[in-house]
Computed example of a mutant assay.
Amino acid sequence: MKQDHHLGEHGERPRGLSRRALLGSGGAAALGLALAGAASPRGSATASEPGRTRVDAAGARQAGVARPRIAQPHLALAVYDLSGDPASVLADLGALILDLVEGRDPALVGLEPGDLTVTVGVGPRLVAAAHPGAPGAEPLPSFPREDIDEQHRGGDVVVQVCASDPLLLPLVLVRVAEKTTALQERWRQRGTRGPDERVRRGHSAPRNLLGFVDGIAVPTTKEEFAASVWIPDGPAAGGTILVVRRMEVDVAAFRSLSVGEQEAAIGRRRASGAPLSGGRIGDDVDLQAKSADGRYRIPADAHARRAHPRPAGVPLMLRRSYSMEEPLGLLFISMQAELSTFTRTLERMSEADALLAFARTTASGSFLVLPGFDRDRPLGSSLFGGR
Rank of each mutant, 00 (worst) to 15 (best):
L77T: 01
A66T: 03
A57P: 11
L77E: 05
A45K: 02
G43M: 10
A91V: 02
R67C: 05
G84D: 11
A91G: 06
A39S: 14
A57I: 00
G43N: 04
L75I: 11
V89F: 00
D85I: 05
G37C: 02
A91C: 08
V89A: 07
G59S: 07
G43Q: 08
A63P: 02
A39Q: 09
L33C: 10
R42G: 05
A58P: 00
L77D: 03
V89W: 00
D92V: 10
L77V: 08
A76I: 06
A34K: 00
Y80F: 13
A95Q: 09
G94L: 06
A91N: 01
P86N: 09
G32I: 01
T53A: 10
G94N: 00
G51T: 13
G64W: 03
G51K: 03
A71I: 02
P68E: 10
S88F: 06
L96E: 01
A76P: 00
T46Y: 15
L31I: 12
L31C: 08
T53F: 05
G32W: 03
D92G: 11
T53L: 10
A87V: 08
S44I: 08
P41G: 09
I70Y: 02
G51E: 01
A95E: 12
H74D: 14
S83M: 11
L93V: 08
A47Y: 08
P68S: 10
L31M: 15
L35T: 02
Y80A: 04
L82V: 06
A60G: 11
E49L: 07
A76K: 00
A60I: 04
A38E: 14
A38H: 14
D92C: 11
G37E: 03
R42S: 09
A66M: 07
L93S: 02
D56M: 12
Q72E: 14
V55I: 12
V89M: 00
L35C: 07
S48T: 07
Q72T: 15
G43T: 09
L82W: 03
G84C: 08
A36S: 15
L75F: 09
P50G: 13
V79S: 01
V79G: 00
V89Y: 01
A39W: 15
P68N: 12
A39R: 12
D81Y: 02
A63V: 04
A36Q: 05
P41D: 14
L93K: 04
H74E: 13
Q62H: 03
V89D: 01
R69I: 12
V79T: 06
D92A: 09
A47T: 01
A71K: 05
S40T: 15
